[in-house]
Each structure stands twice: as structure tokens, then as C-alpha cells.
Amino acid sequence: MERKIRVLVAKPGLDGHDRGAKVIARALRDAGMEVIYTGLQQTPQMIVEAALQEDVDVIGLSILSGAHMTLLPKVTQLLKEQQMDDVLVVAGGIISDADAAILKAQHGIAEVFGPGASTQDIVRFIQDHVSVSRE
């Protein structure tokens, strides 16, 4: 039986705005994925521990607080320490193009989706990249 794509959707840090995360969770569900939603104010440690227990293929991080250059590299660093760097990590939120370029080039973030990104694009990106990493 085909295993469904499992995605952890998490909000690292202190901002309390999770409308975007919930919209994404819903869109991924509608695309047939199993979405584990962990709620607000997650530390990088909590996120990586949940990703490990849930054996997810993808982590989606939603962040609006501006602390992305601290928190997102911390998540990917912890994943590396757990030998979980085969997990696809994508981010969404208010992240400048310059920051996004650094996160992608240096910190193992596969893609950054800003305001206005369509849920279809996000779904397609995940489907394409998970099937590649599974082959």
C-alpha cells in the first residue's frame, strides 16, 4: 500500500499568527497528505522531536516574527544532528528575498514561500520533491 506523504506543519518562535499555517495544513490535506499540526510557539527542539516521532517526509515552518534567520537554521542544524537531513524543509511567512537566498544556499531550507504564494504551488513543490527524495 502506498504510504501517504506526511508533513509536520509547525510555528517556531513566539508569534501567535497561525492563520497561514492552518490554510497550508488544509491545502495539504486536500491534496491527500497527512498533516501533523503542532500549534504555536514551538522551539526548534520541539519541532525536530515531533518530526522524528511522526517520521515525516516534510517539515513546513511558518514564521512571521522576523526571527527566521535564528530559528530556521537551528531546525535544520538539529535535523542534521539527528541524521534526519533527508527530511524536506520548506518555510513560509514574511521572509525577505535576501534572507530566503541565504536560507536556501546555506541552511538547508528547500524553498521559501512568501505572501501571495499559491497553495497549488506549495502542494506541487512538496509532491515533486518528496517523490524525488524517495526514489
Binding site: A25, D30, A31, G32, Y37, E49
Partner: peptide, 30 residues
């Protein structure tokens, strides 16, 4: 969801207090 086969598994939201304890392991299932 009976329509898409997907699921949003949200039980962990209320289980935050169990985080960071190696004596606990939580797994969500659709």
C-alpha cells in the same frame, strides 16, 4: 477526510506538556 484521503492530525497541539521527555513517545495516525 473521506473526500481527499488526507488528514489534519492535531492531537499534538494539546500534548505540548509531554515534549522533551524521553519517557514519552507520541504518534499521530489517520
Amino acid at each position: 477526510s473521506p473526500f481527499t484521503g488526507g488528514a489534519v492530525l492535531g492531537d499534538r497541539i494539546r500534548m505540548q506538556a509531554l515534549g522533551g521527555d524521553p519517557g514519552v513517545f507520541i504518534r499521530s495516525m489517520a
